[in-house]
Simulated scan of single mutants.
Amino acid sequence: MSQRINAFAMGNKAVNALHHLGSQLQHSSLDRSFLELLYFRVSQMNGCAFCLDMHSKELRASGETEQRIFLVSAWRECSFYTDREKAGLLWAETLTSLNGKEVSDEIYSEVTQHFSETEILDLTMAVIAINSYNRINIAFGADVGTYQVAEKAQ
């Protein structure tokens, strides 16, 4: 699909607010590399090729292993994700696929064993943000494959 609208270049106030949310999450209580892994997993679930390209590049640039990137969709069966990461991925998958269902007490209990209340709220906002980005990119098309990792200031 060709790009229909470049929603991120239009100066739309709501899209700008989403961008601001994403920027705030980079300075949240959550580890940035974990956030990238979460964004990658949710983008897999939503089929957002632009975000998969973007977050795979960010993950590699931050030193994440290919094994952890390639197998994140099977995180339940892998021993190389921490219990905390698994709880966060469980939360992200659950919120992404709610479909009118409530989050079970069992899932909430699992998440609260690994994350503080502030972290759970940040985790929830991160899931909301990436789901929103995914939907914008899928609805309007995005130039998949063009994302470049920004050079780090030294």
Rank of each mutant, 00 (worst) to 15 (best):
F115L: 08
E77H: 13
L59S: 00
F50Y: 15
I128M: 12
L59I: 01
S79A: 11
T65L: 12
L71N: 14
Y133H: 07
E119K: 08
S33F: 10
K57S: 05
R84V: 08
Q148V: 15
N46Y: 09
E93D: 14
L95K: 02
L25K: 01
E58N: 12
G145C: 14
V144G: 06
F40V: 04
W75Q: 03
L95G: 03
S73P: 01
A61M: 07
G63Q: 10
L21C: 03
H114E: 15
G63R: 10
D105Y: 02
Q113P: 01
A142Y: 11
K57I: 05
L89A: 01
M125K: 05
E110D: 10
C78I: 09
G63I: 11
F34H: 03
G63H: 06
E64N: 03
L90G: 00
L37G: 00
M45G: 02
A61H: 11
R41G: 05
D53H: 05
F70P: 03
S28T: 08
A49L: 13
C51M: 06
N137Y: 14
S43G: 08
H19E: 15
E117D: 15
L52R: 00
S132P: 04
D53C: 01
V111E: 07
L71C: 09
S109Q: 07
K86R: 12
M125L: 15
I138Y: 05
M45K: 11
N46M: 07
H27A: 12
S28M: 08
